[in-house]
Amino acid sequence: MGAMTTVFRRELAGYFATPVAWVFIVIFLLTTAAFAFYLGNFFERGQADLLSFFTYLPWLYLFLIPAIGMRLWSEERKTGTIELLLTLPISVPAAVLGKFLAAWAFVGIALSLTFPFWLTVSYLGDPDHGVIIASYIGALLMAGGYLAITSCLSALTQNQVIAFVVSTVVCFLFTVSGTPIVLDFVSGWAPEMLVDQIAGFSFITHFQSIIGGVIDLRDLVFFASLIGVWLFANMIIIEYKKFAG
């Protein structure tokens, strides 16, 4: 536990030690604003809610989260510090969790800085704060999902560009798995049940039901178990590479 906290703190401080954190936060805020105002018609809709902000969030995450997570393990491999980390008295699960939680906390910080949207709609109208809180929780959980995928895949390579591209593709598949892009591929030959399963993996479907104001436990469980499964795979990859070399 102590070792995990130490890794967590080092990683989180690491984001702010370089310009990475500030660049990310500025770009994240600018693009969320641009999406919300231009694509989402934040004002023109005349609704006191944050739907126009949250609707486009998965598409932003698709690029920004892999950009944050791509370095998690690949950079350790590249600089050789993974050898240092894994020969310290810390378990692999603790190292994986510490790093993941730090990146997640960082995304949480960036997300929390979108609070002016909330203030604006509160000032202009009378939004349903429950839905907004739920949407933020959903947005954080979804970020965790994207991040767990990226963390796991970054453990496979020492090349951050490869980690980024592969993670983005996998994240894309999870984002759109409920749409024809993916379903048309499988619906021709796969049994109905499998098609439904694949559609059930869609981030957008789960996220939309959360931001629509329907807090279904199943959506929360979906994201939580997705994070769990990818982080478990992450740990397996690190352990496996010890033996495969």
Binding site: G2, T6, V7, R10, T79, T81, L84, T87, P89
Partner: peptide, 24 residues
């Protein structure tokens, strides 16, 4: 380890503190 890897953006002070903390 070979090549003495260390986290490049940390200072020796922060780095040694990190190691000492993981080592309890």
């Amino acid at each position: 380890p070979e090549g003495a890897p260390a986290y490049p953006d940390m200072t020796p002070a922060a780095f040694l503190n990190f190691i000492a903390s993981i080592r309890g």
